[in-house]
Design a protein around this nucleic acid. Structure first.
Lengths: 231, 231
DNA sequence: AAAGATAGGTGATTTATATCATACTTTAAA
DNA sequence: TTTAAAGTATGATATAAATCACCTATCTTT
């Protein structure tokens, strides 16, 4: 991890409208002063479960995984998060400690804002409070939706969902480098590594995707959607 | 459904401290005026998915299920909610419509507060905004936790968790009437009705619980906990 | 009281997934 | 640069859960 000198201001940040659209000049200054940019290298653990929360985290560049480790030592990935995501907003005002760990999957640039300043702004600016509440509901809705989806799917449907997530939500192309290992892929869909590998091989053999190591090329995008929706 | 004349005021409500502890007298009056008590009979559908959200819902007595119906017509229960729960807080400021349906499992008394008044209070009272944000995070944390738990469990562990939920969180006794059918039990743990029934029978035959129709008596509470934790 | 619908229950069989074993490949460390 | 450790891959087998079939009991409605 490396703390960077401020390069941009919140006011001109591309993600500004997502949450900070309603702040006035003085409030921007407050956020800007209470904030630092942090660069994490690939594979770095940003936060540990049970670590005290004292900042609001905001992804500017890169990719992270949110995960929990069970009592047998096995990891379970809750979600993959990308630029624009507020990766700890849901738990920030609730717990004194994180209830999941966060690690980077790529080199990642994040903004860290002192939690007390954010709390102050929520109290002082009603519109900002509403956007926080709005954003939290949005994140929770995605968790509910993905849980609902997974409970209807078998392994093929789950694999298809994740492949489409990377293609549509993260890389915006049909060919991309998978940022996770096969083991992590399994941890994300609650399946074993072996069956995850096998199913990716099946998709490859069936001509739905072409795999070469970490490179994935989606050949039959529409069929992948059918698999995602129907099982 | 039956609209009741106001009997109690928010100020003396037993659940006041959960969310409304920081309101002043004028604000209490606002909530009280914008609020109505509604009594739903057993099995009634309170809200439908895709229905417009225009009130904040607050359980005072009874029990409800939150669920979604998939494209094959099968229901998936997201959670069972009990008195003191804010059953639509997570999505209230996000969507214009519900993203799940709500039905009662028992006769249920709820408070409905006009959403605009709640939004006004969030904007006007910073401490109230903080308690809303705090409470939302708490609810989201429970969803994350239950998802993490389920992904580690097979059917026995899931059944044990639900039985302990009813005993510890809802009825506060080891003997209770199951408020859901075996089918709904399955919808709650993402297992088929048949296997749910079979596992309850197994628990009964093994002397862990005693079942008679809807009546459940937990005989070996500690062992049920072991099953919940270890699989 | 009869008839139909829903709920509870159990066995047999099929299917999906986990587990175990083993090999080869790539990456990281000594 | 060799060695060790992960990661990828695939087959065989075991286990968990779904499905199908059928039956009885209990509500609901007429």
């Amino acid at each position: 991890m490396k703390i960077k000198n401020d390069i941009i201001s919140c006011k001109t940040c591309v993600y500004r409208t997502l949450l900070f659209g309603c702040l006035d000049d003085i409030e921007y200054k407050m956020i800007n002063n209470a904030r630092r940019e942090v660069l994490f290298h690939k594979g770095e653990k940003i936060k540990s479960e049970f670590e005290k929360i004292n900042s609001f985290l905001y992804l500017r560049r890169g990719l992270v995984k949110l995960y929990k480790t069970d009592h047998t030592g096995k990891d379970h990935i809750l979600s993959i998060n990308k630029p624009g995501d507020f990766i700890n907003l849901l738990c920030i005002f609730t717990n004194e400690t994180y209830n999941y760990s966060i690690s980077t999957l790529e080199e990642t640039l994040a903004c860290e804002v002192d939690i007390n300043v954010l709390e102050h702004l929520i109290k002082a600016n009603g519109d900002f409070a509403i956007s926080i509440v709005h954003r939290m509901g949005h994140i929770a809705g995605e968790i509910i939706e993905s849980r609902f989806e997974q409970s209807q799917q078998q392994i093929k449907g789950r694999i298809a969902s994740i492949l489409l997530f990377f293609a549509d939500q993260v890389y915006h192309r049909k060919t991309f480098e998978l940022p996770i290992t096969r083991r992590e892929f399994g941890e994300l869909i609650s399946m074993t590594t072996e069956n995850t590998i096998r199913t990716l091989s099946d998709f490859n053999n069936d001509g739905i995707i072409a795999t070469k190591g970490k490179t994935i090329n989606i050949l039959d995008y529409d069929f992948l959607w059918k698999i995602k929706v129907n099982g």
